[in-house]
């Protein structure tokens, strides 16, 4: 299970406690999180399913490359961070 942490900036809008989630890609991990917290999806993803322009995701400190399909690989104990990009503000 990957460990998924969200920017604390989201705390003011909804519950985003750090959680463990299964999945072999960023997409699968996020889908696992959204299954338990459906409202969170629209805060992170655009309607078409890609990552919002001003949101960044890091896996073990590396920024994900595939922002549209979210196909970057995730393995067992990876740390996934969903962050607010400074580009948006």
């Amino acid at each position: 299970m990957a460990r998924v942490t969200f920017t604390p900036v989201l705390d003011r809008h909804l519950d985003v406690a750090t959680t463990s989630a299964a999945g072999a890609t960023v997409r699968e991990v996020l889908d696992s999180v959204f299954a338990a917290n459906p409202r969170l999806r629209r805060y992170v993803l655009e309607d078409h399913g890609g990552l919002r322009k001003h949101v960044q995701i890091f896996v073990n400190g590396e920024m994900v490359a595939d922002r549209r399909q979210l196909g970057d690989a995730v393995t067992g104990s990876d740390d996934v961070y969903v962050m607010q990009a400074l580009s948006g503000g």
Partner: peptide, 27 residues
């Protein structure tokens, strides 16, 4: 700005708010 457009509704004159759905274009 970072996290999209969201709609909140209050049924008690603004004392409490609940986020409702939002228009969503086809995935």
């Amino acid at each position: 700005g970072h996290f999209g457009v969201h709609i909140h509704r209050s049924d008690d004159g603004g004392l409490t708010w609940t986020e409702v759905g939002a228009p969503t274009y086809p995935e």
